[in-house]
Amino acid sequence: MSTEAVVSIRNLNKSFGDNHVLRGIDLEVQRGEVVCIIGPSGSGKSTLLRCVNMLETPSHGTVVVLGNDLTDLDTDLDAARAQIGMVFQSFNLFPHMSVLDNVCVAQQKVLKRSSTDAQKIGRQLLERVGLSEKESAFPAQLSGGQQQRVAIARALAMNPQVMLFDEATSALDPELVGEVLNVMRGLADEGMTMLVVTHEMGFAANVASRVVFMDGGVIVEQGSPAQVIHSPKEERTRAFLSNVQQH
C-alpha cells in the first residue's frame, strides 16, 4: 500500500455555540485505507465526518483532502466535494427523481457527462448494488436498504477518491443492514478509501484497516481492529465496547 494521504486533518476544532464538539482532532487516512470511527453518541464522530467535506465548517484547524486545504477560502469546495462521496444515515435520495435520475443528475450537472454516458455508468452502478430492475422506480417505492444502496451508487457515479459513510445502516430495519454492509465490504475489497462512522462492531472488526475510538470530541485510541476492539488499552474504550457488546 502506498502511503499517500487522501485525508489529512490537523488540530480540528468545532463548536456549536458553547458546545465544543471537536477538541483538536488529528487524523490521516491513506489511500486504500478503511477507517472505522466508533464511539458513543455525542462523541463528535459524525461532526468529524461532516467536516471532511465541509458540510460543517470547522471552527479551527485544517482539513486537507487530496492535497487541497478545504478550509482555505481559495479552494473550490464544489470541485473538492465532487471527489468525496458521502452516504447519509437518512439516505437523502431526491424523492422527485427516478432511481436512475438520482444516480445520473450530478454526473450530468457537475461532471458534464452526456446523458448517454451518465446513464451507462448509472446502470452499471445500479447493477453492481443489485438494483438494475428498479431504475425507473421512485425512492418512496423502495425499502430502506434499497434506498441506501441507490445512495451509494449515486455517490460512486462521481468516481470519488474517498467515501464517507455517516451511520449508513443506523436507520435500517435489522434485516436490511446486511445488504448495505455487503456493498460497503465489496467497495473496501476493491481498495476504495473509506471513512466509516458506524455502530456495527462486526463490520469494524472484519473490514476496517484501522479503528478510531472517539469520546468527548477527542480521539481516545486508534489502531488495528485487533488492538482497539479486541484488546483496548483505554478504560473508556473498554467501557464503551462492553456496553455495545452486551446487547
Binding site: 467535506n53 458540510l55 466535494r81 468525496i84 437518512s90
Partner: peptide
C-alpha cells in the same frame, strides 16, 4: 424541504 436534500446535493459537488 428537508435539510438533508441540500446536504446530499452539495456533497455531490453541486453549487
Amino acid at each position: 424541504v428537508p435539510q438533508g436534500q441540500m446536504e446530499a446535493a452539495r456533497s455531490l459537488g453541486m453549487s
